[in-house]
Design a protein around this nucleic acid. Structure first.
Length: 340
DNA sequence: AAAGGGACCTGGCTGC
DNA sequence: TGCAGCCAGGTCCCTT
């Protein structure tokens, strides 16, 4: 499942491949993929055609392509504020794939390889053009296709159709900082304005986040998953962060000390940084059947998907519980429930 | 107003 | 073997 590290891997790939290219045409092959687009498919096609991609930006699990003004291809500079963006959310199973005019296919796995081996793991670095790998690819779930002037294409592929794309206008950020990772412009698409900054965002006010978290009257896992509080964390990284911080997800946020909240946020930050360093492999979890969720994030998962397996810290079998209609994995020894 | 729960999806897997 | 039912979960929307 794409959470922050996976979406960032995709964003880095787009930054290296589609920025600077001009969209010639767009096709919507499944209406549900554009269900959040006012005006529907026709509107999206009309608003994206003729626009040049100025930047690939991400906040949490949302990513977007800033669009240059129509009729002025490539004229949008870093000093201009983008007025519109093509927004994408991958949902559960979405992928953004670049197909080159010569028929070669580029996949986000390329970006993963680069992030893993790249110099200083610089997230802003563009990808070397030599890094091209052909991967098997199915058009069975192709939902939206952009074709660039040079014949290259950007595909939005999504099996479970929880993802979506739309073109939207931008609004200023609430704090005046950059809208997201990948652009310094202090704007972000209106449909993303309610999404909080994520844990890898340099403009994140961590002290304020600790205060806001403790002000919530809810369970701590629910808070971690609330994208309006802090973004980018999904079910998998939430469980891993809670395990590292030795907290059970049901603990009330307002009874945690500031130090404990900081510890948890640091754990979530660390686990996502580590996943990003190996490119995030959660897409494979859908297709690879190895010991439940094993195969995802390699050997690094300590709790998620490990029901019955020994806790790497204390050896007690990891337990599985239902929470928010999802599975939660935790160690009964290291992660004690809150007292009643 | 904040918090919590259900709906939306598809395909692989399980069990009868 | 076939098939019904379960399960995965991110986000929006509605109710309380």
């Amino acid at each position: 499942m794409p959470e922050l590290p996976e979406v960032e891997t995709v964003r880095a790939g787009l930054a290296g491949r589609v920025v600077g290219r001009r969209v010639a045409t767009a096709e919507v092959l499944h209406p549900r993929a554009v269900r959040r687009q006012p005006g529907g498919a026709a509107e999206l096609v009309a608003r994206v055609a003729g626009r040049t991609v100025a930047a690939a930006v991400r906040r949490g699990k949302y990513l977007w392509l800033n669009l240059g003004e129509p009729g002025e291809p490539g004229e949008l500079t870093e000093h201009d504020l983008p007025q519109e963006a093509l927004v994408a959310h991958l949902g559960m199973s979405g992928q953004l794939l670049v197909q080159e005019p010569d028929g070669s296919r580029r996949h986000d796995a390329d970006a993963a390889a680069f992030v893993a081996d790249g110099p200083a793991r610089d997230l802003t670095a563009t990808l070397p053009p030599t890094l091209v790998r052909t991967v098997p690819l199915s058009t069975a779930h192709l939902r939206v296709r952009l074709t660039f002037d040079d014949g290259g294409q950007l595909w939005f592929v999504d099996q479970r159709t929880f993802g979506h794309v739309l073109v939207a206008g931008t609004v200023p950020t609430a704090d005046g900082g950059p809208g997201g990772h990948g652009s310094a412009a202090p704007v972000l698409p209106a449909p993303v304005a309610h999404i909080a900054r994520d844990l890898l965002d340099p403009a994140l006010d961590r002290a304020a986040l600790v205060r806001r978290t403790r002000a919530r009257r809810t369970e701590v896992k629910r808070a971690l998953l609330d994208q309006t509080l802090v973004s980018g964390v999904g079910n998998i990284y939430a469980d891993e962060a809670l395990w590292r911080a030795r907290l059970h997800g049901s603990r009330p946020t307002d009874r945690l000390s500031p130090a404990r909240v900081r510890e948890l946020l640091d754990a979530a930050t660390d686990v996502m940084r580590e996943a990003l360093a190996v490119g995030g492999t959660s897409f494979d979890a859908l297709y690879v059947d190895v010991e439940g969720a094993a195969g995802y994030f390699g050997r690094s998962l300590n709790a998620y998907g490990r029901e019955g397996l020994p806790c790497p810290r204390c050896g007690r079998p990891i337990r599985r519980e239902q929470f928010m209609n999802r599975s939660s994995f935790s160690c009964p020894g290291c992660q004690r429930r809150a007292r009643a």
